[in-house]
Design a protein around this nucleic acid. Structure first.
Length: 765
DNA sequence: GTTCTAGAAC
DNA sequence: GTTCTAGAAC
């Protein structure tokens, strides 16, 4: 039987009442109180998704109302977009219907938005994987005619092959409550029958069904991690039992553990905790190892060397812990300190108890964080480190202890993930299995965290500013916990292919980001190994008030990525070894643009704190602007000596993207791979670019520069800066300007707006 | 500012 | 199928 052949299908034909309904949407409104479900069909063209959907739609005699959302027909009968499907699915769910999502959904990313939708509206999301042999799908899609998505013939084979290459098997970690694999037509028929028989308040068992028996069965991960929002148990409907065996759920452990609220845990109490529970002996081992893989031990951040106020810190810890525990079930957090007399432990303990945080989910622990298992009997796969911004060993306290215990492996692994850390962020590092800390204590990941500093003897002291400090400390804990959750999710997701946590995860999925990332998860801006512009020590911290200090008021807020020039201008000595740094004076620094938009492109960056853009410039800054201009001319001259064919223009962007006033000196060839888009082009060739000579003149005459806030010029058509011809796209424009020999527009030829070997020569004589 | 990628355009 | 853009995320 061929479910996609169009004729006979395994499922009953649609009854007359619904046969005439639109294929994209069933029209009968469901009676209230139903248990809705979104069924995500997963399979390449030719796998029989549409047949499946139509069969369920037509065969459903149990009173449930289904809506088929089909991307191949959603655009007025033609193929549409994912957005259209999302909207249709959302609408159908809103109307109380269950949804059959009829699109390939082969990759995780393609499913992610639908998973979000399901979670948002609290409906269970199932995957039905139509897992037929590739050649079957290909032969069907090659031979069929009149396909809704116009995918047929030879092209189809190519497409199917390509799709299958990128296929990512659905995982419970994505948010599915049930995943069913159908490997042949018989199994497809069973699935159709099962969904057809699903009444309005029925639900199907959670778990994974029909997958190859190799490897451990996936457990219901989302039940581990996510709040159960809409569990089948709540519906009150009877369960429709599939023929397959029910996967064993192991999600009942942590709630059974009832420590004294807010209790401090010692070695004894942990042992007691394990022993006193009514857990079957045979399952205890797996349960215990399971909970260790969901436990994070962390030191108090910023309260030791960074001298953060303990009372405030304890409030923040308890808040952040409560937040994350509320968001995710079945993770366990442990605050660790060395001494029984630790004030932070007692404060946190007290406040956690007041907040009614369950001590089975969060407790304090007295012991050495590097010897939790061997000396303390507490097994945690993940521990946090109170790191320094350089992510270097040494110093003292927890950082030194962890680096000592973990050996060089940790240094190496850390280096692969990040160079530096900004206060308020964290980075998760998989600990190689060769590390003593891994072997002895079972630690698979270390999450480095950097908190705010209140110690004037340490970098980036916040000088008692607890408004900022508290915000950063909260961010630090939140970042730590989210990184931890991501590790747990990643390890759980691997269970169907590898034993969990036997070796460090090589990919970690962030809760907010469905993309699989390499090696480790860095919540802050990815620390890039830029030649010159590097995120570092202070980056974003304590910047908002800076401009006010110097009496300049700017309302614009700057992203973390926009701080690089500021850092450079404030601390050029840190960049002395960089090839890009050309000159340092008291007023400005000159550097090669990291992403030059022409053969020669340098920046003269003012060093005045608080002067972020032209909008801040007043008459008092005129001498500075003139010195910057002279420096720019000097460098242009130097470049012209090396290549007399160049022509330079000096000017400012009306609204710069990077903080700290900077003058561009850019050659007019625009021959650079870094010039990639319309915005790049138009920012140097339209009125967005303000010539330095004009800016100086206007400030001299009017006291400020006229800045058009209209950035529509950046989206204008692409025109040659010489002959003004228009071009359809960047590649065509670039090939044109490579050969355009027209003279520049006349206004540029005036007032030394352009510097060339001829104008410079005239200046000199 | 860059990077990433879905979707449009070809 | 590939190329390119535009918008989001960082």
């Amino acid at each position: 039987m061929d479910p996609d052949a169009g004729g006979s299908t395994a499922a009953p034909l649609p009854p007359a009442s619904t046969a005439g309904a639109s294929a994209a949407s069933a029209t009968v409104a469901e009676e209230g109180g139903g248990k809705q479900v979104m069924v995500v069909l997963v399979g390449p063209p030719g796998s029989g998704k549409s047949t499946f959907a139509e069969a369920v739609l037509g065969g459903s005699a149990a009173g449930r109302t289904w809506s088929r959302v089909c991307q191949d027909t959603i655009g007025n009968g033609k193929a549409g977009t994912k957005i259209q499907c999302l909207k249709a699915a959302a609408d159908a769910l809103k109307e109380g219907k269950s949804v059959l999502l009829d699109r390939c959904n082969l990759e995780r990313e393609q499913r992610a938005d639908f998973m979000k939708l399901g979670s948002h509206v609290h409906v269970d999301v199932h995957a039905v994987v139509l897992d037929l042999p590739a050649k079957v799908c290909i032969s069907r899609s090659v031979s069929r005619t009149g396909h809704e998505g116009n995918l047929q013939g030879g092209r189809a084979a190519m497409v199917v092959n390509r799709m299958l290459k990128n296929k990512e098997t659905p995982l419970l970690t994505e948010g599915f409550s049930r995943i069913m694999f159908c490997k042949d037509n018989n199994e497809i028929k069973k699935a159709v029958d099962m969904y057809s028989a699903l009444g309005p308040s029925d639900s199907l068992d959670s778990g994974v069904f029909g997958q190859n028996s190799k490897g451990p069965v996936q457990v219901g991960i989302m039940k581990f991690l996510k709040k159960p929002g809409s569990s089948a148990e709540k519906s009150g409907g009877h369960k429709v039992r599939p023929n397959e065996s029910i996967p064993q759920m192991q999600n009942h452990i942590s709630e059974q553990q009832n420590l004294e609220v807010g209790g401090t845990c010692t070695v004894e109490s942990v042992k007691e905790l394990s022993n006193s529970k009514k857990i079957e002996d045979q399952s205890r081992e797996s349960v215990l190892s399971d909970i260790s893989s969901r436990t994070l031990a962390f030191p108090s951040i910023s309260t030791a060397d960074f001298q953060f106020d303990l009372d405030r810190a304890s409030d923040i810890i308890v808040d952040a812990v409560a937040d994350i525990l509320q968001k995710y079930d079945n993770i366990r957090l442990v605050l660790v300190d060395l001494s029984h007399k630790s004030r932070i432990l007692s404060l946190v303990k007290e406040k956690a108890a007041k907040k009614n945080i369950k001590s089975s989910r969060f407790f304090t622990f007295v012991g050495d964080i590097t010897q939790l298992q061997s000396k303390g009997g507490l097994r945690c796969n993940v521990i946090a480190n109170a790191a320094n911004w350089r992510l270097k060993p040494g110093g003292g306290g927890v950082n030194a202890a962890i680096y000592n215990a973990a050996g060089e492996d940790l240094q190496r692994a850390t280096k692969e993930c990040a160079d530096t850390l900004r206060p308020g962020s964290s980075v998760a590092v998989p600990l190689p299995s060769t590390s003593p800390l891994h072997q002895r204590e079972g630690v698979t990941h270390i999450i480095h965290v950097l908190g705010p500093n209140m110690n004037p003897m340490r970098p980036d002291c916040l000088k008692n500013d607890y408004t900022k400090g508290s915000k950063i400390l909260h961010e630090a804990y939140t970042s730590l916990f989210e990184n931890f959750v991501a590790i747990v999710q990643s390890c759980m997701g691997k269970q169907n292919t590898e034993p969990a946590l036997e070796k460090p995860a090589t990919a970690v999925t962030s809760p907010n980001d469905s993309k699989t990332k390499r090696e480790c998860n860095h919540d802050s801006e990815r620390t890039k190994k830029h030649k010159l512009v590097q995120p570092n020590t202070s980056s974003n911290q304590a910047r908002e008030g800076d401009s006010k200090r110097s009496g300049v008021t700017t309302t614009k807020t700057w992203g973390s990525w926009a701080q690089a020039l500021y850092e450079l201008a404030m601390h050029p000595e840190n960049y002395k070894n960089s090839d890009s740094l050309l000159e340092i004076s008291d007023d400005f620094v000159v550097l090669n643009d990291l992403y030059p938009k022409a053969k020669r492109h340098v920046l003269v960056v003012s060093r005045k704190d608080g002067l972020d853009s032209l909008a801040d410039v007043k008459k008092e800054h005129l001498p500075l602007l003139r010195r910057m201009h002279s420096a720019g001319v000097k460098w242009a001259q130097k470049f012209l000596e090396e290549d007399s064919s160049l022509v330079f223009r000096l000017g400012y962007h009306s609204v710069p993207s990077m903080r700290q006033l900077h003058l561009h000196i850019i050659s007019q060839d625009f021959n650079s791979a870094s010039l990639k888009n319309k915005k790049h082009w138009n920012s140097f060739t339209t009125t967005f670019f303000l010539d330095s000579v004009d800016v100086i003149e206007e400030i001299d005459q009017r006291g400020s520069a006229t800045i058009s806030s209209d950035d529509r010029v950046l989206a204008m058509e692409l025109r040659c800066h010489r002959c003004r011809s228009a071009h359809p796209n960047i590649p065509k424009l670039k090939s044109h300007i490579a050969s355009c020999k027209s003279s520049f527009p006349s206004h540029l030829l005036q007032k030394d707006r352009l510097l060339s070997s001829s104008t410079m020569h005239m200046d000199c004589t």
